[in-house]
C-alpha cells in the first residue's frame, strides 16, 4: 500500500512538470494553432543556465530569478525571428519549423554544456516521511510552484481581457484587434508565456530529474501528450493531464518495468487520438479553456 502511495506521490511531482510543459503547448495552440515542438527545450535551457550560474557562485534564488526572464526572452526572440516571418502557416510547416528550432536549440546546448546531465542544488527544506511515504522537499516545491504558476496562467487566459482577446485571435482576429490585440502581438505574448512555464518547469524539476541537452525532447513530447488530453485547447485539462501521465508512468515503472516508462505516454497519445481526438473532457464543440 505504501509502495502504491509512494509511486503515486512521486508520480504527481513528475506529472506537475509535465503539466507545466503541457500548459506551454496550449498557451500557444489556443492562440495561433501552432504545436511548438521546441517547448521542452525551454525547460532544458533554463535548468542548464541556472546550473552554470550557481556553479559560477550566484546563490540559488537570484540564479533562478534571473534565468526565467532570460528564457522568456529567448522564446520571444525565436518567435520574432522564425515564426513571425512566415506569412501563411500550415500545420505541416509549423511542425517542420519548430522541429528545426528544437533541433538547433538542442545542439547549441550540447555545444555549450556538453553531454552530461546535471542537477541544480535542491531548494531549501527537509525531506519528510508521512504515512510510510517519503516525501522530498523538492517534490513539495514542485507541486507548490506548479500549482501557483498553473493557476496564474489559467486565470490570466480566462479572466483578463488580454487573455480573452488572445484566445479570440485564433477565431475572431477582428474582434481581438478591436480591443487592441493584433494576432502578431498575441502570438508573441503566447510564446513568452510558453517560455515562462517551460523555464519554471525546468528549474523546479532540475534538482530531481536533472537537466541535459536532450532532456527537452522527451519532456516536450510528454507535455504534448498531456495537452492532447485537453484537445490542445484546455489549459486546465492539460495541467491535470500532466499529473495523470506522471502517475501512470510511475505505476508502469514500479509494477511492470522501468524500461517501458517512456512508452506509456505514447500509448496514451495513440489511444486518445484514436478514440477521442478532440480530447478526453471537452465535447467537440464545447467552449475553449
Amino acid at each position: 500500500m505504501s509502495d502504491l502511495l509512494q509511486l503515486v506521490f512521486s508520480g504527481l511531482a513528475q506529472g506537475a512538470v509535465y503539466g507545466l510543459i503541457a500548459l506551454g503547448f496550449v498557451a500557444i495552440f489556443a492562440v495561433r494553432e501552432i504545436v511548438n515542438l521546441a517547448q521542452g527545450e525551454y525547460a532544458a535551457l533554463a535548468g542548464l543556465s541556472a546550473i552554470s550560474a550557481v556553479t559560477a557562485g550566484v546563490p540559488l534564488l537570484p540564479a533562478v530569478v534571473l534565468v526565467v526572464p532570460m528564457v522568456v526572452m529567448v522564446a520571444v526572440l525565436i518567435e520574432r525571428l522564425c515564426i513571425a516571418p512566415i506569412r501563411k502557416m500550415t500545420p505541416l510547416l509549423s511542425i517542420i519549423l519548430t522541429l528545426g528550432i528544437s533541433t538547433a536549440l538542442k545542439a547549441i546546448m550540447l555545444l555549450i554544456w556538453g553531454p552530461q546531465a546535471r542537477g541544480l542544488p535542491a531548494f531549501p527544506g527537509r525531506d519528510i516521511v508521512l504515512a510510510g511515504v517519503s516525501i522530498r522537499s523538492q517534490e513539495l516545491w514542485i507541486l507548490g510552484i506548479s500549482a501557483v504558476v498553473g493557476a496564474a496562467v489559467v486565470w490570466a487566459y480566462e479572466h483578463t481581457l488580454l487573455g480573452k482577446a488572445m484566445r479570440a485571435c485564433a477565431e475572431q482576429p477582428v474582434a481581438a484587434r478591436l480591443v487592441g490585440i493584433s494576432p502578431r502581438m498575441a502570438t508573441m505574448i503566447a510564446f513568452g508565456v510558453a517560455g515562462f512555464v517551460g523555464a519554471v518547469a525546468g528549474l523546479v524539476g532540475s534538482p530531481i530529474y536533472f537537466s541535459s541537452w536532450d532532456y527537452g525532447l522527451g519532456l516536450g513530447l510528454k507535455g504534448f501528450v498531456a495537452a492532447t488530453l485537453g484537445g490542445l485547447v484546455s489549459l486546465r485539462v492539460a495541467l491535470f493531464g500532466g499529473l495523470l501521465l506522471g502517475v501512470l508512468e510511475n505505476l508502469v515503472a514500479g509494477y511492470i518495468d522501468t524500461g517501458y516508462r517512456d512508452a506509456v505516454a505514447f500509448l496514451v497519445l495513440l489511444l486518445v487520438l484514436l478514440v477521442r481526438p478532440q480530447g478526453l473532457v471537452l465535447k467537440a464543440s464545447a467552449a475553449r479553456v
Binding site: 522564425c82 517542420i96 519549423l97 522541429l99 528545426g100 528550432i101 528544437s102 533541433t103 538547433a104 536549440l105 538542442k106 545542439a107 547549441i108 550540447l110 555545444l111
Partner: peptide
C-alpha cells in the same frame, strides 16, 4: 552536427 540540421531546416 544536429546544430546544422536544425539551422538548415529553419
Amino acid at each position: 552536427q544536429l546544430v546544422g540540421f536544425g539551422v538548415v531546416l529553419v
